[in-house]
Design a protein around this nucleic acid. Structure first.
Lengths: 341, 341
DNA sequence: GGTCGACGCTAGAACGTTCTAGAAGTAGGC
DNA sequence: GCCTACTTCTAGAACGTTCTAGCGTCGACC
């Protein structure tokens, strides 16, 4: 008989296997594996070696079943959305820093948010983080009654839901300030429609324009989340009379659509028209795009989201102040310059 | 005392709670919830109502702990990679169709593949699907010894690993055929470097050129996965003498970088230069890009990947034929036309 | 009228872990 | 020598589910 104790074959190795090999009780092995107090240094060493030899891996399900706390946070994200990718990256590091794990559930064209949430509910998550959810406020409230829920990158009217989001209005204010400083007076805004944050950004654009005494030149063009919608908006912009010399755009993806149409129409960016995006996505950073844009602080957003979720679990979160707003900052690249003439 | 039986409060409701309410035993409730045979219609109805009233949700961890099979497939994907998003979408539907669930684990800038895989190993997955992994073949082989592993969208030399991938060489052959048919004779290829599939695509390009008797005009420009690398390659292409009238490009992202530089240099696509991408990503479909491209059949790829994983689990997978190659097809849009002159 | 099978249901164990309670053993203080 | 305190360890139960085995009851068959 050969030794089949390796990790490769048949039944998975359990605490009992390790305990037998090390000549101790099962709970003691558990203690060692968890680095919990209650074992001598010599025994720890022996148990560790036995576990190593057997290729032992703790069964996280059994552990969670037994433990009161799962230290697991569910995350719902859109698989299509590049910005969600950035946020997921940040969430992983933020969660790890406070000893939590993440359970991911994707929203895809064939799998809506309800499904994504439902699958996490079975998973013993202690809290849920939803990235830019489209769920109705009532659904969110219902979910919140069941467990802590933190919504990221979307404003929610319902005061019972924790929200962490960028100060979208301030972001557009920054963009307009920058353009005004360069000397622009006719500044358009390409809108995001019903997308999360769009209303706030539109509001910020309007407010900034008025504060600079440029309210008369206000021009909101209907756009959207995607390049195509940006392209359509750019065509509308070209026909405006007088034509704006600058545009703030709902997001970077949409802005690249705008850029493309402007350039194909023979205009130079930024010489003829300046363009400012939003998100500072990897798209904007590409050297041949070099989009001036409003950067969201993903690191801060994700850290706050995880912190709020865990605080809610510990009961240390404030009952008021459910909304945390993170200031954005402007990243000036190559698509903004003084107006022509 | 008010009724605290609702789903919102304290301890989660268990089978025992439902059983007590319905006046039956715990296993019977389990039978009803699983739609397993062994309960009368009347009882089923009563149990279902009790469960509904209590807001009962099965605890998937306890279930998995008890069950021999978890019917759970782990998926490792790159959160940055849009094409992985498409694949994940397909995997969800393919898995659901055969009664499996997915456990997602993301690769991010701060979380490498090892970490991603390790977290799934704890999770009781029965099989692993890895999307375009960068892991060494030896690591893959080691993993395969432990559990069924299916690699998607990357060729693996090791014959012990199941692979489902697009026929990259054939894809480039299609692209070259198309360009030759249009009348092009000087066709360049923008390379993907060490990226998964790049070597195959380069090979397909060379083979097609030779078959058309155009081997003399072979020109491979070093590119990569991203727009920036495509832009650099396009600058090299502009300096080539004689200048190619067409280029096949490693992928769509890279191709958009190529397009951008060509157009900024004052050339018209497709009038002066034709460009063919690879992936048929959402990028290529954008109306203002309208990239002619080689489409990967994501639906087929994902269905085959799930089918292979489950077949491996059932022991019905063939010992040979570890590699399944899916033919791509050409999507002709607006970036290809006959050469000038 | 007894055996058989099917049906509807239940008792008890099992999955792999962690928790609680407590048992040995050692050491120190009086 | 006894009490207390501490360390190291173990027995047994518990988490919520599903599996195995088996118990009644009913009807049918010979």
């Amino acid at each position: 008989m050969t030794d089949v104790s390796g990790p490769s074959r048949g039944r998975r190795t359990t605490l009992a296997d390790v305990a037998a090999r090390a000549g101790v009780s099962v709970p003691l092995v558990s203690i060692v594996m968890r680095d919990a107090p209650g074992a001598s240094a010599a025994t720890r060493e022996r148990v560790r070696r036995a576990a190593e030899e057997l290729g032992y891996r703790p069964d996280i399900r059994a552990r969670l079943l037994r433990r009161a706390r799962s230290r697991l946070i569910g995350v719902v994200f859109g698989v299509q959305h590049p910005f969600h990718g950035d946020l997921v990256s940040g969430l992983y590091t933020a969660a790890e820093a406070v000893g939590y794990e993440l359970a991911l559930s994707a929203v895809t064209p064939g799998r809506d948010e309800r499904r994504a949430v439902a699958s996490l509910l079975q998973d013993r998550c202690e809290a849920l983080i939803l990235l830019g959810p489209q769920l109705a406020a009532s659904d969110l409230a219902e979910l919140t009654a069941r467990m802590p829920v933190v919504v990221v990158a979307r404003a929610v009217r319902n005061r019972a839901v924790d929200v962490v989001r960028t100060d979208d209005a301030a972001g557009l204010h920054l963009a307009v300030d920058h353009l005004v400083e360069l000397g622009h007076t006719r500044i358009a805004h390409v809108d995001g429609g019903r997308a999360p944050g769009a209303a706030e950004r539109r509001r910020g654009y309007r407010k900034a324009l008025h504060e600079h005494g440029l309210g008369a030149g206000e021009l909101v063009l209907s756009g959207g989340l995607t390049e195509d919608e940006g392209a359509a908006a750019a065509r509308a912009l070209l026909e405006a009379d007088p034509r704006p010399t600058a545009a703030t755009v709902f997001n970077d993806r949409c802005a690249t659509g705008v850029l493309d149409v402007l350039r194909r129409a023979g205009l130079s960016v930024p010489r003829d028209v300046s363009v400012v995006g939003f998100d500072d996505s990897s798209l904007a950073r590409l050297s041949h795009v070099a989009l001036t844009t409003v950067a969201q602080d993903t690191e801060r957003l994700t850290a706050l989201a995880v912190a709020r979720a865990t605080a809610r679990l510990d009961g240390t979160a404030p009952a008021s102040e459910r909304e945390q707003v993170v200031p954005p900052h402007l990243v000036v690249r190559g698509t903004t310059a003084p107006p022509p003439g």
